[in-house]
Simulated assay, not measured.
Amino acid sequence: MLHAVALGDTPPPTVPAPAPTDPPTGSAATGSGSPEPAATASGTPVATEAVAAFQTALGAEHAAIYGYGVVGARLPDDQQRADARTALAAHQARRDAWQRLLGAAGATPSAAAAGYQLPFAVTDAAGAARLAAHVETRLAGVYADLVAAVATPRRATATDALRECALRARRWGAAPTAFPGIPETAGTASPTTPGNASPTEAASPTA
């Protein structure tokens, strides 16, 4: 499994990578064709739609980790780079948590793509901060969807992830929103992020 280059290393090569195949959802089917919830090691079932939502969150974390590799390579060795290292570690921890959860539920965690297409060129520290804000803003949207898809007690974990992404987005300069993770109405897109990007466009798999 390939991940982002370490913070402070040279930017990753721009060699196109094949798009990843659709990951299995890890759900089983009954004789009637209705999906059954997957069960974790603790015995708590994970609904089929929740497994799919966790796969989406895992894929978004893979992209965020890659994005922070680019961010760190363009930041000076100061507090911003320290913040980027902290954010990278947080996203790696979330990735690992979702991998464990999906594995325990009987699903195969989706793998990271070998390369990702950034939403815009990052050539300096200002662009790096803008990319970090974009990554966190879009990931907050993914976690808002996860909050809606899962039941307690996992909803609390998803809510924590949403809150952390929203706070990091603000730290990197994203505009404040009344409801982090929920798309704004037409014509009110944040100036720090392109208006019609998908949740993981911050670092989309290259074709």
Results as ranks from 00 to 15, higher is better:
108 T>N: 14
97 A>L: 02
110 S>W: 10
96 D>S: 14
120 F>E: 05
105 A>C: 11
105 A>G: 11
99 Q>H: 08
110 S>C: 14
104 A>L: 09
97 A>T: 03
109 P>Q: 03
108 T>A: 15
121 A>N: 10
107 A>V: 11
104 A>F: 08
111 A>C: 00
111 A>E: 13
123 T>Y: 03
118 L>H: 11
112 A>G: 09
104 A>R: 05
122 V>Q: 10
93 A>C: 03
105 A>P: 04
111 A>S: 14
109 P>D: 04
98 W>M: 10
95 R>Q: 15
120 F>Q: 06
111 A>H: 06
109 P>M: 01
94 R>C: 05
124 D>V: 05
114 A>N: 02
104 A>V: 01
99 Q>P: 00
114 A>T: 00
111 A>L: 13
103 G>R: 05
124 D>L: 08
106 G>M: 02
113 A>G: 13
113 A>S: 14
99 Q>M: 07
95 R>A: 10
112 A>F: 13
97 A>D: 06
120 F>G: 11
98 W>D: 01
100 R>Q: 15
119 P>Y: 00
110 S>V: 14
96 D>C: 06
102 L>T: 04
115 G>Q: 11
122 V>M: 01
93 A>V: 02
124 D>I: 01
102 L>W: 05
105 A>Q: 09
105 A>T: 07
112 A>P: 12
101 L>Q: 06
98 W>T: 00
109 P>K: 06
104 A>S: 15
109 P>W: 07
93 A>D: 05
101 L>S: 08
120 F>W: 05
93 A>H: 00
112 A>H: 12
105 A>I: 02
113 A>Y: 07
